[in-house]
Design a protein around this nucleic acid. Structure first.
Lengths: 193, 193
DNA sequence: AAGATTTATTAAACTGGTTTAATAAGAAAT
DNA sequence: ATTTCTTATTAAACCAGTTTAATAAATCTT
């Protein structure tokens, strides 16, 4: 769990004792491609950290998956709304490739935050970072063209294109597969001859 | 500052002593309509709470304001990215009507969070709530039609339409004024005869 | 109240996407 | 290897928005 430890300390200093206290709760689990960690109607009382692999977070709209996020190595995730409010989820969490995850229960998260001010601070700062990421995403969706967003994703998370089918990336970008295909064609024409 | 106190306690219990400790830092300030609390290039080391009034948070794109949020009564706000990273802002914060604000400096926010675990927790939970709001916004922008988003805004924050010019609301919804006008026309035709 | 400015609507031409459907290419199963 | 299933591309018709420009309505100034 070296990388998880490192991840936590990238937010704020945590004493060895506190670190040990919280790490004891995480359980390593492996899920094969195709596993659903969460489906609509289910409750979720766990927080996850991706050690290795990829998980999609999506909602189904008229039978079509609308991808909100791809969680890859180093991401913390859950369906935060359902987790916090303790209501049935509206979303899916689907494992897109064989994935190794560290899991911690909500109870144990809360134990950790109660145990030490520093761990509580880690909670605040990680949430802060997630907030900023989301905010930049909103800015992008509102003010950047689809084509530009595609290019930026290509630059920022190139490996996604190797591991995730294109129609899911289209969905993540807010496009249909046809729309994304058109953009790709347009770009390939520009670049080549 | 009764309402600010109440707001803080709506997130988590805070002892009277801790509450007094943090409230001492807030300063009441009044700004007339048209004031800019922040412009691009400036640094921001304050957090704000709207006691009364309305502040727009926008970025200028090709000379056109793109509104990210309207902060009204009961909102905490700042330009979080510039605040955290201590870099020059890219955004504007403009007072849209005479507004009363409680201001606290970043130093004093940090003093508060250092002072007590409960205040740190308030910080985490308020950030968590902001995260969820943002997330639902992303979901809305991605998966809800412009027309439907307009209707939902009308239902959720009707007073905005009384206090903010329509072209700013259009911008907030990701539309041009022309586009919003069309939507309004379409809807008025449907409802009436 | 008149004039000046800002804001909202309408029209017309355009555009970047959608939908639907057919086809092609790739991957998995037998 | 052949079939089957999934994924990606292309084409054609369509549509909800945009841009530009003119007009109308509302608000602010003096």
């Amino acid at each position: 769990m070296k990388d998880l430890q490192h991840k936590i300390r990238s937010f704020t200093p945590v004493s060895d004792a506190d670190m040990e206290f919280t790490l004891q709760f995480y359980k390593k689990e492996s899920f094969p491609k195709g596993t659903f960690l969460l489906k609509p109607g289910q409750y979720i009382d766990k927080f996850y950290y991706v050690k290795e692999g990829c998980v999609s977070y999506f909602i189904e709209e008229d039978g079509i998956p609308q991808v909100m996020e791809f969680f890859t190595e180093g991401y913390f995730f859950t369906d935060l709304y359902a987790y916090i409010e303790e209501v049935p989820s509206l979303t899916y969490l689907e494992v897109l490739e064989d994935t190794v995850i560290y899991t911690i229960s909500k109870k144990d998260v809360e134990k950790s935050f109660n145990h030490s001010h520093q761990l509580e601070r880690f909670g605040r700062l990680s949430m802060q970072k997630a907030f900023i990421n989301n905010f930049q995403r909103i800015h992008q969706i509102k003010n950047v063209s689809n084509q530009e967003r595609y290019i930026q994703l290509l630059e920022k998370r190139p490996s996604l294109f190797q591991r995730v089918p294109q129609y899911l990336i289209a969905s993540y970008l807010g496009l249909t597969p046809v729309g994304l295909s058109k953009i790709r064609k347009r770009l390939s024409k520009k670049k080549l001859p």
